[in-house]
Design a protein around this nucleic acid. Structure first.
Lengths: 164, 164
DNA sequence: CATGATTCAGTTGTGCGCAATTGAATTGTG
DNA sequence: CACAATTCAATTGCGCACAACTGAATCATG
């Protein structure tokens, strides 16, 4: 009833929504800002940002089924299927039913897709320059974000438990 | 020509794509993981994550035109117009052409939209708990992400200059 | 006052992200 | 071998993000 509440150590209840807005919004904004810079750089490669992520995996690990691509990128077939079709239409990848398991679809780079890697090599350096961050800062941020992702994924599993 | 290049202080050219993949992917993944947890918590409020961001702004700053909402959230009308229509259909906001400037549309909370704030107050604390981060860590991450966003926005402007 | 530039919200089209479903192929069990 | 459960990719539906465009209202200039 009184207004003489001393400045508490913990934020006032009314402040929580503001604080929260800043936290979640910062991540949201950073993600889109990052996306924006990539969009510009990747336009000349004819790739979108998620398509670039797929190509990174293929360049690093080579041919693999859609399932494994999705596991590495945390994307399901609802996102990957149309994306891979567009990459195939662009002539960068080839999709083929596995001989061993007809349920599985193997994705592999075409010669053109493999060749694109050389042009992509300059992208990371330009992104680094755009951030103005040092290698150490980038590494630290990556570690923090990975820890955040792990914690959030764990929490999501505990919150969503489909009972049973 | 030779393969006897000594281990350089800077990463090998071949490593750049891998490093880059980790950096951009970490942010991408963290953003989606965050989104996933919010999705669960906000479902009981009947809001999506971007809709929640809009409500946060309205709760904090009150009635304002679409233009200002977009400036605060870095979203354009292509995103906001349909989003606000859905919030209006849900009975949470009201849209009305400004009397002073017929081009502008004022967005204000309905009583129902204002009342929803009370139920939203518990969301930030639950998100905090899900991250496992301390207030200090959250604040530090926010600062880093804001610095990153500012730098990336600046770089995007310099890279995209539509000449003029 | 007239006209040309600017400022708005809205629409369209493309692509990503995710939940839910479908249907075929495979595996496990009796 | 037969049948049920599981594992895949693909599809559908909805919402967000963004570029490009439309059209109305406003402002600036002469």
């Amino acid at each position: 009833m009184t207004t003489e509440v001393p400045p508490a150590a913990a934020p006032d209840e009314e402040d929580w929504l503001r604080l929260d807005g800043q936290v979640c919004f910062s991540l949201h904004a950073a993600s889109r800002a990052f996306n924006g810079v990539y969009r510009v750089l990747l336009k000349e490669l004819g790739l979108t940002y998620p398509q670039y992520l797929v190509m990174l995996v293929l360049w690093e690990h080579g041919e693999q089924p859609v399932k494994r691509l999705g596991a590495r990128l945390r994307l399901d077939s609802g996102t990957l299927s149309p994306l891979l079709k567009r990459l195939e239409a662009a002539g960068l990848v080839h999709r083929e039913r596995s001989a061993h398991d007809e349920r599985s679809v193997e994705v592999r780079l075409t010669d053109e897709g493999t060749a694109l890697r050389a042009r992509a090599l300059q992208v990371p350096r330009r992104i680094m320059a755009a951030t103005g961050f040092t290698l150490e800062e980038i590494a630290a941020l990556r570690t923090t974000l990975n820890r955040l992702t792990t914690a959030l994924d764990k929490a999501a599993l505990e919150t969503t438990p489909a009972c049973d």
